[in-house]
């Protein structure tokens, strides 16, 4: 259990190694992660999403600086896609996250999606737990926000920041496609550029048209520039205000419950999928034959698989 001690004491190597174990997903780390989970619940988790190139990593850097200046510790989990061909990945978010080194109050971890449904959410939320237990006050999770796994990660955040950039066109499209509903805060990046105003106006227009939060929170639209370090204090203030709103309204308890629910169901799905794919190859093949022959229907076949997986 001294790995757990290292994590709780905030020792960098211990945190880093624990994350690798969690990502590998072997059974040997479950006990440690269970112990770590008991020490979580203090960190505020911020999901940061937007299309590639919108400026998430750059914003994470300046936001981290602002968080440090406010006397708090910050962890960053940056998720990038794996290549569908080789399964490998080039994780480049650190290229933007300069000037944060040598400060024990900042911990940055890069992760690949690995293409496995369910696996990404599990591993990155384990990493968030590890940072939480290690005493990081705010954990920022950067993801591109496409795909069910990434949406699950975002929905595990207490505050979701959706970032839009001028000149990327497909931005508003991406937001229409589902990110609009999950945003607690909209930020527009690169406001040092003249065309940023257009993006701000478009977004504000869309927000007045629809989607009220329902819980009394007014979703703000904030201009930011990492280049000129403008609007970053306001963004952090909005994140803190959203947290205060959740706490005052009691919404935080609901959100935590919902996050736990999504996680439990996700893990269960993940386990069932791995079991079906792994140990029951023969049974699945047999059932497929019978379904093809119209002897059993797909529903009955699925129930059969479930019953079999319960036996081991």
């Amino acid at each position: 259990m001294d790995m757990v001690e290292d994590v709780l004491a905030g020792r960098v190597r211990g945190i880093a190694r624990m994350m690798s174990r969690a990502e590998a997903g072997g059974g040997d780390c479950r006990a440690a992660l269970a112990e770590i989970y008991r020490h979580t619940g203090r960190a505020h988790v911020v999901g940061l999403t937007g299309v590639p190139g919108s400026g998430k990593s750059t914003l994470a850097r300046v936001l981290a600086r602002a968080i440090r200046a406010s006397g708090r510790k910050v962890g960053i989990v940056a998720v990038d896609p794996s290549s569908p061909f080789s399964g490998g990945a080039i994780l480049g978010d650190r290229v933007r996250m300069t000037g944060l080194s040598g400060d024990p109050g900042v911990f940055i971890r890069s992760m690949a999606t690995h293409g496995a449904v369910g696996g990404l959410a599990r591993a990155s939320l384990d990493s968030v737990d590890i940072l939480d237990a290690a005493g990081f006050d705010i954990v920022v999770v950067e993801t591109v926000g496409v795909g069910q796994d990434e949406v699950d990660i975002l929905q595990a955040a207490h505050t979701v920041v959706v970032l839009s950039a001028p000149g990327l066109g497909d931005d508003i499209q991406a937001i229409k496609a589902g990110l609009l509903e999950i945003a607690d805060i909209h930020a527009v990046s690169k406001c040092d550029r003249a065309d940023a105003n257009r993006t701000l106006i478009d977004l504000k227009g869309m927000l007045t048209l629809g989607v009220a939060g329902g819980d009394g929170w007014q979703v703000p639209v904030l201009p930011t520039s990492a280049e000129n370090d403008e609007g970053i204090g306001d963004l952090l203030a909005a994140i803190d205000a959203h947290r205060a709103h959740l706490e005052d309204s009691g919404g935080i308890a609901l959100r935590r419950r919902r996050i736990a629910e999504t996680r439990i169901l996700g893990i269960a799905e993940d386990i069932v999928r791995t079991r079906f794919a792994g140990r029951h190859d023969g049974r699945l093949a047999g059932l497929l034959d019978r379904v093809m022959a119209r002897e059993v229907d797909p529903y009955a076949a699925a129930m059969d698989m479930l019953a079999a997986s319960r036996e081991d």
């Binding site: 080789s86 490998g88 990945a89 994780l91 650190r94 933007r96 300069t98 040598g102 890069s110």
Partner: peptide
Amino acid sequence: RDAGMDVIYTGLHRTPEE
């Protein structure tokens, strides 16, 4: 990457400490 590894690239002009 094409051999299936996860590669973290840190960019130009880093210090040994970083």
